[in-house]
Design a protein around this nucleic acid. Structure first.
Length: 558
RNA sequence: GCUUCCAUAGUUAAAUGGAUAUAACUACGGACUUCUAAGCCGUUAUUCUAGGUUCGAUUCCUAGUGGAAGCACCA
């Protein structure tokens, strides 16, 4: 039983002994450690029901709690308007130290989604546009959710949904067939931009582009299909090499082309019925009662499925292939209205899909105050940005060994800037100010980890082994370590990686402060030294596990 | 016009309805004959406006101001 469960139960019993039941109270870590390890608001919430002053009631609850003699509780203090502040006992910390040693890299793992299957779809690329820093934002959040879900006890499947087909792609293929350039990531991007431009300027190419689109949508054997397939494979390799660097792996892909076929079929089966023909297209008209939902085109007048229909197909394929109990998908928040409509329509086809799906929207990166758009040039590519930041990291390296780490430090700095914010929030991304190696930053967390590794290694030379001592008093860093499990649990249930980020910063700061004023390796005070080493080791493990949840590497040296 | 989201120090961000709103960057100052100075300690500064609900509001509700997004065949 976790400490939270133990305390919850104890408070419920204490309340029951006072004849109080049905009170919904919270048990949380106070902002300041001075207030104890846990704070409970039961007295504040129940005061009215009982007709007592909150502080008086809190005092009564305290007495009942003390009667229970819970070994994990050291003391109970009533503070402020009537908070019940609980400080944990030495026994608890001894057990915790034990637990961290035993669980290691899985310390912090919960059972929130135990026995369930969770699907996470993220990082979906457009195969004719290079992977830019907007994609990197999606990836950072998506990958962190994957890791969090793995820590939820669920079996996790990952998926990406590449856009391989659209009228825009047909335009790009048109350019490719005409110019036959060597396939590179640049030529793909250029063809996309040029195709769009050409289509706008020259109406005479419309018929040919439509023909290409039809052949691609219909999977018809043709020169365009062959070029298209080659480009697609090329780009998937490029995509995998980048996301691999960022720590992601995808168990499977569903392409828009597949989803389009399935989606179109489903729409047609439900027309008329759920969908309606209108002006040559097939549309979905939401019920009058659905305020704010607009009519959307699912199959256009050319007979091709739109993004809406593709998403219906995607839902069908996801549930048919993976059978998830929970299906998360991560996209830009500008797609919120789109998914509202799609899910509203989807609910009428298969309610199960909608009940089990959760859309996790993220903000956009604004860059030097301007919103980035991939249709315009000048959007920084992910690889370029990593290289740029890595130059700075290299400049700080003290030896050739460290130069090799530059890239992973750069990635840490970038990911940190993304993950520290609430996912829905737009991020003002100015490398000058947002990307830091000092203070609240990814490298700061990495540095703290590396520093601890170094200390523990040095201790080994002096034959000092980390060992928890009952005689040593408990310090703030240890109390911080005890909060990790709660933080992970909250991050999982709210899809909120920023909780982990904020917590790791506090933990690292707390440790660095401890480190600055306490000598860890000290052969004259062996017991104390061993105890401090045990603390260092626990902090190191928690930082490592926390960074893992953010998909940031934890180097042993830097 | 309709719908939705957002507004926190000079800047970038944090805060399940809780206690003195948390940090970092910047600026200035400081400590260290100790294990990694990408570190530590200190100083200054913040909830858009007006109401409401509540024991308690950055958080919930109403109105306003300012910004962003979506609103028929792009994704």
């Amino acid at each position: 039983m976790s400490i939270t469960q133990t305390l919850n139960q104890a408070i419920t019993i204490a309340l029951a002994n006072l004849g109080i039941s049905g009170v919904v109270f919270t048990l949380e870590h106070p902002t300041e450690l001075i207030h104890g390890d846990f704070a409970c608001n039961a007295a504040l919430v129940a005061a009215k029901q009982v007709g007592k002053n909150p502080r008086t009631l809190a005092d009564d609850i305290k007495i009942e709690l003390e009667k229970l003699e819970i070994p994990e509780i050291d003391s109970v203090v009533i503070a402020g308007p009537g908070f019940i502040n609980i400080t944990l006992s030495k026994k608890f910390f001894v057990n915790l130290n034990h637990q961290i040693g035993e669980t290691g890299n899985t310390f912090g793992k919960t059972t929130i989604h135990a026995g369930k299957k969770v699907l996470v779809e993220h990082s979906s690329p457009n195969l004719f546009k290079p992977f830019h820093i907007g994609h990197m934002m999606n990836n950072a959040i998506g990958e962190s959710l994957v890791r969090l879900m793995q820590f939820s006890g669920a079996e996790v499947a990952t998926m990406s949904f590449p856009s391989d087909i659209s009228l825009g792609v047909a335009k790009a293929i048109f350019i490719f067939l005409e110019k036959k350039p060597e396939i590179t990531i640049e030529s793909l991007g250029d063809a996309y931009v040029e195709g769009t431009k050409r289509y706008e300027e020259d109406e005479s190419v419309h018929a040919r582009v439509k023909e290409i689109a039809d052949n691609l949508y219909g999977n018809v054997d043709s020169p365009e299909l062959s070029v298209f397939t080659t480009c697609k494979h090329f780009n998937i390799n490029y995509f995998e090499s980048i996301v691999g660097k960022l720590g992601s792996h995808f168990d499977s892909y569903i392409y828009e082309s597949e989803a389009g076929i399935v989606g179109k079929d489903l729409i047609l089966k439900n027309t008329p019925g759920i969908f309606t023909e209108s002006q040559g297209a097939i549309v979905y008209i939401p019920d009058e009662s659905k305020k704010g939902l607009n009519t959307a085109v699912f199959i256009n007048s050319q007979g091709n499925p739109t993004y809406e229909a593709k998403d219906i197909g995607l839902l069908d394929l996801k549930f048919e292939r993976v059978h998830p109990d929970l299906s998360l998908f991560v996209t830009d928040h500008e797609q919120i209205p789109h998914f509202k409509i799609v899910l509203d329509a989807a609910e009428k086809i298969n309610k199960n899909w909608v009940d089990k799906s959760v859309h996790v929207p993220h903000g956009r990166m604004t860059f030097k105050g301007q919103k980035m758009s991939s249709r315009l040039g000048g959007v920084p590519l992910a690889v370029e940005m990593i290289e740029d930041v890595a130059i700075e990291a290299k400049a700080r390296a003290k030896d050739p060994e460290q130069v090799k780490l530059a890239e992973s430090i750069a990635i840490a700095a970038i990911k940190f800037a993304i993950l520290r914010a609430k996912p829905g929030q737009n991020i003002n991304f100015d490398p000058e100010t947002s990307l830091s190696f000092e203070g609240d930053s990814g490298p700061y967390l990495q540095y703290t980890h590396a520093r601890i590794s170094s200390v523990i290694e040095k201790a080994g030379e002096q034959q000092l082994m980390p060992q928890y001592s009952e005689g040593e008093s408990i310090v703030d860093v240890e109390r911080m370590v005890a909060q990790f499990e709660t933080v992970v649990a909250n991050a999982i249930s709210e899809y909120a990686p920023q909780y982990v980020v904020t917590y790791l910063l506090e933990l690292a700061r707390s440790f660095n402060s401890f480190y600055a004023s306490n000598k860890i390796i000290d052969s004259e005070h062996v017991e104390q030294s061993q105890h401090r080493l045990a603390i260092a080791q626990n902090v190191q493990q928690v930082i490592k596990n926390g960074l893992h949840l953010l998909a940031i590497t934890a180097p042993n040296r830097m």
